[in-house]
Design a protein around this nucleic acid. Structure first.
Lengths: 246, 246
DNA sequence: TAGTGGTCTAGACCACAAA
DNA sequence: TTGTGGTCTAGACCACTAA
């Protein structure tokens, strides 16, 4: 491109920020593609008629955002786009198993209403004793036990949900369709524990076998906690996968 | 404190990095506490006998890590320790422990060069037999064993790293500073396993105790796999936390 | 008004990569 | 050997805060 943007010296934006914006546009606008060599710092300095320090300050921002990287003696390059999607999405057991090429199954063990204990109440930000709907399910993969899921819902947000739940459908979809509860964010803790005799029996493993214990609180769009999910995954079968970024 | 550390002008570490380290120690060592006013840039400049730009480069690192913040016209302050509830950031063991309010420690067990096995080679996308630098560290929290970390680096990308690594510093920082390797993304799998006798002994737990086993591959800006990290965390002490979104 | 951090300049020397 | 980015200096002027 022959036309080159230049900076506005009377703007209230700092020079380095204007340079950053111009370079950013070239990258996100795909004019410069991953792997491309950027102009040298000297060239940019001359092009924008600013000092090298100013150019470097602009480049530092792009480095911090992971959009470019520098190699001493070689130059500055456009970075490969980082996989941003699917970093940490909330996915259901069913989706999860299908992604792994396994056939998901569910056996409904128990449902009911019970008062919140001190522990569950504090997690769900409700009063102790408030009614919670609970759903206990054994999850299967290729017809063999994989995980035990224990779900606690704030009954006030989805009254009568247990009557409409038949044990096989997606709880997420039901909450959204019938109660307009969109689950948009979640926090979870992950621990390694040892199977108790009860859990071992349900999961068809030896007691003392390792389990991945995940405790997740899910929030709706207004940041209200809606569900507390306790999951026990068989250590020998279940592998949690995720992607991280700097 | 009247005694003040000064920088070593013959060190191979850059001045700004030495200043950063000294200031970092004051903060994590709790000599400077949240809310405290730092010396002004001018004072630091005089204290270390470096230019203001060098002081600012050191301060920039601390700002990036969220340890300090600046207010124009007022000064620079130690930040409140915030538990970075990021979605899925790559954080070091050291950062991780600090966020949990535990004092991180490291015991270097073993370093060396060894040829890639079929398994490690495929993970790191190198040939079987290619030289890998490995670093085995026992990680401590409040002086008690927390995790065992087994790191494998493609030696070709960071030749001589083992000579420059003293066992206590940040591997990430070292890779970036000395080899211009910025670790920007990672993929990991998480499993629950049972401690073998060897692992149990190192971690000071019973054999048969549960462990969280995390296997992470870290990539640089050009998407090259750089490090394979195998980590064994004590199930009774270590809890993995993360946030999810829809 | 005095002092802070924010921005900017015009140099310099270095380590490293590639030809 | 040439050119790159990495580090460092010694200034300067500005916008903002607090006294």
């Amino acid at each position: 491109m022959l036309m080159t943007a230049s900076i506005d010296r009377s703007s209230f934006h700092p020079f380095y920020y204007q340079v950053y914006q111009i370079l950013l546009q070239k990258i996100v606008g795909n004019e410069w593609r991953p792997g491309d060599l950027l102009p040298t710092e000297k060239e940019l300095q001359e092009q924008f008629d600013v000092s090298r320090a100013t150019v470097r300050q602009a480049l530092d921002m792009l480095v911090d955002e992971g959009l470019i990287y520098r190699q001493r003696g070689r130059g500055t390059f456009v970075a490969e786009p980082v996989i941003e999607q699917g970093l940490s999405r909330i996915i259901s057991f069913t989706e999860d198993m299908r992604q792994r090429g396994l056939e998901p199954g569910t056996r409904l063990l128990e449902v009911g209403i019970s008062p919140a204990t001190e522990d569950t109440a504090s997690q769900l930000e409700v009063s102790v004793g408030e009614e919670l709907a609970y759903i206990k399910r054994l999850r299967l993969a290729d017809d063999k036990p994989m995980s035990l899921e224990n779900s606690f819902l704030v009954n006030r947000f989805c009254p009568g949900i247990l009557d409409r739940y038949d044990g096989s459908q997606s709880l997420r979809a039901l909450l959204e369709r019938e109660f307009s509860l969109r689950l948009v964010s979640a926090r979870q803790t992950i621990r390694a524990i040892i199977a108790t005799a009860d859990l071992a029996k349900l999961l068809d493993i030896d007691s003392g076998a390792p389990l991945l214990y995940i405790r997740r609180i899910t929030y709706d769009a207004t940041k209200r906690p809606v569900e507390l999910l306790k999951t026990y995954h068989r250590g020998d079968r279940y592998v949690l996968y995720n992607e991280l970024r700097d």
